[in-house]
């Protein structure tokens, strides 16, 4: 009994995966068995966007000390527009277009760090303020621009092998790489150490400045990548396409078993939580529950999971 408990507490990703399976079973039951595998493959595809932004957000949140990145959806929108705007629906602009999206994310990440560092703004406000500026820039750019993905990219974003989306396979591999980076590299360990105890990490020789900068840059670049991918999937950039990912990027991190106060991060849990969230939306759709109810239920689940998990312990 105790060994099971220890095994579970070391593997918090079990819960979101279990929740995902449960939601999937309910969906299949509601749909009386129709489209069981199609539901799964669609969820695996839509989860990718949550996973990509979630992995970036994970590094920021894991670095603790109130760090959070609220600029994610705005970065996605701007990166999507700039990238698709360059591609113009042509394959010729593919690589440069993707690069533009990533650089856009990089710049937003660096701006976030600059605001936090130079102006001593709390990360919440800095990332929100920078994000709003990015959104205004995207809105300006969106007027009269053709923002369509290159056909190769659009094809990649929707293609499947044996019913499994290629994009999902890609980002399972990326997630494994990120997991190794987090658990085995100096950088990953520095992030977790800083998140657990800033003072102890400093005394242990962790380069705090570089570590935190890197976290925000990773989050920005992943958000930029997600913007390119979602634009490719949807057949073009759109102004409101990324809205769910502000709360969503935080939700998959928290639901996945990472600590909201930092110092503890879990990559597989992000995939589990992303699958759970997308399958949940699917299930509510199958039950004929409208968008407004979905928002309420998602919000309540996140607050409830947080309330059960609790935050920092009293020192």
């Amino acid at each position: 009994m105790t060994t099971t408990r220890v095994w579970l507490s070391n593997r918090p990703w079990v819960w979101p995966f279990a929740a995902a399976v449960l939601t999937w079973l309910v969906t299949v039951y509601v749909a009386s068995g129709r489209g069981a595998t199609a539901t799964l493959s669609a969820a695996a595809l839509l989860s990718v966007f949550y996973v990509v932004v979630g992995m970036g957000q994970m590094f920021v949140i894991a670095s603790g000390n109130g760090n959070i990145d609220l600029s994610v959806p705005y970065t996605m929108t701007l990166a999507g527009y700039l990238s698709m705007g360059y591609m113009q629906g042509q394959n010729g602009g593919l690589l440069v277009g993707i690069l533009i999206g990533l650089i856009c994310g990089l710049v937003v990440g660096l701006l976030n760090v600059a605001m936090i560092r130079a102006l001593r703004m709390p990360p919440i406000i800095a990332t929100l303020a920078v994000g709003y500026i990015a959104q205004s820039a995207a809105t300006t750019y969106s007027h009269g621009s053709v923002a369509k993905p290159s056909p190769v990219l659009a094809n990649y974003a929707t293609a499947e092998v044996f019913g499994v989306p290629i994009m999902s396979i890609t980002f399972v591999l990326v997630a494994i790489a990120v997991g190794i980076l987090l658990a085995r590299s100096t950088f990953g360990r520095s992030v977790l150490a800083y998140g657990q105890n800033a003072r102890a990490a400093w005394l242990a020789g962790v380069k705090i400045q570089g570590t935190v900068t890197m976290c925000f840059v990773i989050s920005g670049v992943f958000a930029g990548l997600a913007g390119v991918l979602i634009g490719a999937y949807a057949g073009g950039a759109a102004l409101n396409i990324a809205i769910p990912y502000q709360l969503g990027s935080i939700a998959v991190v928290v639901l996945g078993g990472s600590s909201i106060t930092g110092g503890k991060a879990n990559v597989p849990g992000i995939w589990g939580a992303a699958l759970f969230l997308t399958l949940l939306v699917n299930m509510l759709n199958a039950m004929g529950i409208g968008a407004a109810f979905r928002d309420i239920i998602q919000g309540l689940i996140i607050v409830a999971v947080l309330a059960i998990a609790g935050g920092e312990s009293e020192r």
Partner: peptide, 10 residues
């Protein structure tokens, strides 16, 4: 003891 940002965002 949860950060207000996340709860209020939810």
């Amino acid at each position: 003891r949860i950060p207000s940002i996340v709860v209020t965002l939810g």
